[in-house]
């Protein structure tokens, strides 16, 4: 099957080149969001399919990576809902808090708690502290105001501090 490429001769990558170049960083971001490999792989594949469908817009965007990051983050959030009063909530997977490297596992004090934050808080934390985005960039990515980003980040940090305090006070 012929692959569509809208890349003009200006150095813009083709879709194939983009997938090859961005698979690993997208997967790592997806893993930080989902905290397990199966969901991370699904999320990135979904993102890349949506990216293909809009490749002309993505390739023409001032920041293709920002555009795709927005697709990825919103695909993640649209698959997970906030507080719900539901008696039909089923097999909503708890996050995997394991880390691939056993050596690094002992040193990680916050990651197990990050992985249990609500999805939107987790997204803000990952975008802020891993992707190093500004509050305005996060607001643009999530489609919310900077005030919401601030309050969400504040809630997440407060929750993490609280959980850390609880862990440190745990004799076990």
């Amino acid at each position: 099957m012929a692959l569509r490429s809208t890349a003009p001769a200006t150095g813009t990558p083709t879709y194939e080149e983009y997938v090859a170049a961005r698979w690993t960083p997208l997967y790592r971001t997806a893993y930080l969001l989902t905290a397990n490999h199966a969901d991370a792989e699904d999320l990135v594949q979904t993102t890349l399919v949506k990216t293909y469908l809009s490749w002309s817009k993505v390739a023409g965007a001032s920041s293709p990576d920002g555009y795709v990051r927005r697709i990825l983050t919103n695909a993640f959030l649209s698959g997970r809902r906030p507080l719900r009063v539901s008696r039909e909530r089923l097999v909503d997977q708890a996050p995997d808090v394991e880390v691939a490297s056993p050596d690094s596992h002992d040193r990680l004090t916050l990651w197990p708690h990050i992985a249990t934050l609500p999805p939107r808080q987790r997204a803000v934390i990952v975008l802020r502290y891993y992707e190093d985005l500004s509050e305005q960039q996060i607001a643009d990515t999530l489609g919310c105001s900077t005030g919401t980003v601030k309050s969400t980040a504040s809630d997440a940090l407060r929750s993490l501090r609280s959980r850390m305090a609880g862990t440190e006070g745990d004799p076990s």
Binding site: T24, R28, Q45, V99, L108, T109, L110, V126, Y129, D132
Partner: peptide, 22 residues
Amino acid sequence: IEQTLTDELRVVAAAVQPPPPP
């Protein structure tokens, strides 16, 4: 906590071994 977050997220991400691209 903010520096620790940055450090740990990078450690976790670096430790992730992605499967081959589709």
